[in-house]
Design a protein around this nucleic acid. Structure first.
Lengths: 136, 136
DNA sequence: CTTTGTGCAAATTCTTTGCACCAAA
DNA sequence: TTTGGTGCAAAGAATTTGCACAAAG
């Protein structure tokens, strides 16, 4: 896990301001693939002047610099993940929670044309153990 | 390919109205993974009274009924695909076009917990042959 | 008649922009 | 003094909702 947040940011050419460290730190600590609003709501009690704009700015910057990734698994909200290692995501259609999953091996790109592939995402959807319909 | 649109809709418990057939037909014919607006713009010349609401309603219905799928590959617009066979998608970060790709074999779900998996999506992003940065 | 689909306009929601202020180099 | 980060309010864009009318059974 990322422990030295300021250093980590600098490695990605992101100047470590108070807000940026707080946001990156939240992402690294809470592995819940939070939305912008979840981050904002979690941090604003301790940083009363924090604005949503800054959260948006910072997350966009982190993604651009390769310090975090944006998940497209949720149609309604952007979700962010500090973990850059290859792994898949599962989204429960019941409670909306997103879980990390192992990426199936052999799921590497196969350029059927001369495409340059820079990233890959694997998403599963269904029901988690709590929401599983078979409990009816 | 789906040829008998009205029948296909009925198999999925969707009553085949004029609008629904036109939309489903467009989806089945144009394998470009269109957005709501692309569909609306394409059809409205021949159906001047068609409204965006109906396009939204119909596409939501088709997805609910399993007659089409919603792609999460584009953060800014919902994109739809009439093809329900397992395949992956590639999105060009240059021109925004979305291409079908073979799904890598062995990319089947592996329920690390007792999760019920109902769908899977595999997305690649990068640059297509036209937009490839190596042409610099 | 009753139910269902359609379409317009208004409302919601998420995200970005413009601009002023502040802090750091 | 120049640059870059922050925050507020406003703008933008995609989608949904409310409601009235039309069509179908």
């Amino acid at each position: 896990m990322i422990t030295k947040i300021a250093e980590y940011l600098q490695e990605h050419d992101v100047k470590p301001s108070m807000q940026r460290v707080a946001i990156m730190s939240y992402l690294a600590t809470h592995r819940t693939h939070p939305t912008v609003d979840e981050i904002y709501m979690a941090l604003s009690p301790d940083m009363p002047t924090l604005s949503r704009t800054t959260v948006y700015n910072t997350l966009n910057l982190l993604v651009e610099q390769g310090a975090a990734q944006l998940l497209d698994i949720d149609e309604h909200n952007a979700r962010y993940d500090a973990c850059m290692d290859p792994h898949a995501h599962f989204r429960c259609k019941g409670c909306g929670a997103i879980f990390d999953m192992e990426a199936p091996r052999a799921a590497r790109p196969k350029p059927s044309d001369n495409f340059v592939i820079t990233e890959m995402q694997i998403y599963y959807k269904g029901y988690c153990s709590k929401c599983s319909p078979k409990s009816n």
